[in-house]
């Protein structure tokens, strides 16, 4: 059975902003874009591990605060000339609540 974990309300995340969620497998960034979609990715830039939640959110991307890599929130991949990717975590919205797929944040622990 697919299990989802409720991590908070949509309104807890600022529009064009992000929050971070601590999990046993490390920090996860939860992003809310201008069109009110929500994405979750591992909060470590593939470049030097910068905290992506601290970046500027634009379109469906975030720019890492350390060295300005632009990471796609949809695929987790670095944009432009940079190469690398972070893991993405499936998200579901249910009546104003944000849910993360448990299997995705527990993946490492289970392995």
């Amino acid at each position: 059975m697919t299990i989802w974990i409720d991590i908070g309300a949509l309104d807890d995340v600022p529009l064009r902003g992000s929050r971070c969620v601590a999990t046993p497998t490390g920090k996860v960034g939860v992003f809310r874009t201008a069109d009110d979609r929500v994405f979750a990715i591992r909060n470590e830039c593939p470049h030097k591990g910068g905290p992506l939640t601290e970046g500027i959110v634009h379109g469906h991307s975030v720019t890492c605060p350390l060295h300005n890599w632009v990471i796609s929130l949809e695929t987790g991949e670095a944009q432009g000339a940079d190469e690398g990717a972070v893991g993405t975590i499936p998200v579901r919205l249910d009546s104003g609540r944000i849910l993360l797929l448990r299997a995705a944040i527990a993946a490492k622990a289970a392995a």
Partner: peptide, 17 residues
Amino acid sequence: KHEFKPMAVVGYQEAAE
């Protein structure tokens, strides 16, 4: 306030498969 603390902390128990 939201800037300075995690939105949620998911513990081992909760996350365990």
